[in-house]
Design a protein around this nucleic acid. Sequence first.
DNA 1: CAATGTGAACTTCTTCACAGCG
DNA 2: CGCTGTGAAGAAGTTCACATTG
Lengths: 217, 217
Amino acid sequence: VSSPARRVPGSAVRRLSLYLRALERLEAEGVPTVSSLELASRAGATGPQVRKDLSHFGSFGTRGRGYGVPELRAQLWEILGLTHRWRVALIGAGRVGAALFAYPDFRRRGFEIVAIYDNDPAKVGRRWGGIRIRAVDRLPRTLPRSRIEMAILAVPAPAAQDMADAAVAAGVRGILNFAPVQIRVPAGVSVNHVNMAVELESLSFALHTTREGGETS
Amino acid sequence: VSSPARRVPGSAVRRLSLYLRALERLEAEGVPTVSSLELASRAGATGPQVRKDLSHFGSFGTRGRGYGVPELRAQLWEILGLTHRWRVALIGAGRVGAALFAYPDFRRRGFEIVAIYDNDPAKVGRRWGGIRIRAVDRLPRTLPRSRIEMAILAVPAPAAQDMADAAVAAGVRGILNFAPVQIRVPAGVSVNHVNMAVELESLSFALHTTREGGETS
DNA sequence: CAATGTGAACTTCTTCACAGCG
DNA sequence: CGCTGTGAAGAAGTTCACATTG
């Protein structure tokens, strides 16, 4: 059912997230079943694309009927690895860190922030939702014993690479980087970048270039 | 010099942002000249890719020498439309909005937040850096006269589409959406999505699937 | 001689059309 | 009969090799 599946385009995986969100809303509305077309329209994709994306992992629909909403939701949950409870460290307790920490879907999706680091002495020792903020220079010592699997980097650009190195040295295998720099990591570690500057500038480009615009990312 | 350029891949434009950032650092370091290879390594790309991306817009280098750092920086600045001062509305003054508002590169890049909206009565009337927060229901009346060109949507998911509609009705041609929903806009309006959930889940997928990982986005 | 600029090969992703099935 | 699942066609983007030039 949840298939190993060779060679799945990264863009397809990202769309699965969008499908998942749409399915959650459908389920909340009590809709029992969706066609690929209906799901696509809710998630901003196309019918064939939904079917192709899903086909990388198996057959989840019924011909002539569509997909069972709760069933498909559960499948995507599984495929995306959300059944696992991910232990996450938040590195950087500034405004961005605070916004992330307060993000409600976090916990609901199996991501559990179990450690917070910051280099501001005024913040170290404070607690966010029961978690004590530690000094970043204690990261190499304290992080390994927390058995963290992911790190969220929400530090200023100049510090990002160092923090990433420390996290990787401490056994982290996935990093979500909010700093506007490209992070280098050894093979075997995954990095995803959330770079607001890039998005803003590509928007600037679109508006500046065409008098037409159109959907972009 | 700054060329019209047909059919530029969106991904190439996004990389230009990364090159720009790298060039700014190089300039700060006083480096006068870079090769495509050196620039690529700083921006997380490859030599040929840098050259191809730039070639969509013209010839900016000197053979045997490389690119003049300040010159290329200025060119990218121009290409990305950053010479224009973009008038931006921030819709949603919660934690995400606050983090964005405090983001220093904003202003430096020509993005000027000239209006802020929120639906929380406790926030309406307050000032952020001299800008009064207005009630969202006044957006249709007040936004058009601000001659806003872009909107940053930092509202909860259920409100996002309505706010987008209102912004578009008020003449906004570009939207940067932080809400985890797909926004529908008429042709002629550009939307970029920053969806943390998608990034987290694709990271979850990568870690869950392979025991190898690797660079992703 | 070093490094750009670019057409052409290649790879990857998306779209399409339709066979297959409930 | 409707809608899925998928191989095959097509489009898009990336890599490569090299001629070109200061």
